[in-house]
């Protein structure tokens, strides 16, 4: 769990993905509509269909959106856990510090015992 704190690439990816206002609008539209095709999304996006497809690809790469194929159409929907890494980030940050402070506690105890050793592990 802690790994994802520091290894924040998912969070970085989400931030980068959602930093584009047009893409964000498409994402919100998908959430509101529950399911939407490229054609439907293009009607509202104010950009060309290829541009919408590009945004959809970026949203899929970030695992915010996934597509369901039905005949000639692909219906896009928002994934359930898509935004979770972003919303959990602060909790992870707290964990990161709590664990550091545990280690600091041990280290201070050790220092005062005068038993400092290099490369100790917990």
């Amino acid at each position: 769990m802690i790994k994802s704190v520091i290894a924040a690439p998912q969070v970085t990816l989400l931030m980068r993905t959602l930093s584009d206002p047009t893409r964000r609008a498409i994402y919100e539209r998908i959430i509101t509509a529950r399911e939407a095709t490229v054609v439907a999304l293009t009607q509202h996006a104010g950009v060309s269909q290829p541009a919408v497809s590009q945004h959809l690809k970026a949203l899929q790469d970030a695992k915010l959106v996934s597509g369901r194929r039905d005949g000639r159409n692909t219906f896009y929907h928002a994934t359930a856990q898509g935004l979770a890494p972003l919303t959990r980030w602060l909790q992870h940050y707290e964990q990161y510090w709590m664990q550091s402070f545990d280690r600091l506690d041990d280290y201070l105890t050790e220092l005062q015992r005068g038993k400092k050793k290099r490369g100790r592990r917990k």
Partner: peptide, 27 residues
Amino acid sequence: RVFDAPRSLVFAAWTDSKHLAQWWGPR
């Protein structure tokens, strides 16, 4: 967090790289 150590030592644990390297970061 309360540490059973004098303040000067706890402070040094943050400002001295030799100390910091021993505790910074997750388990």
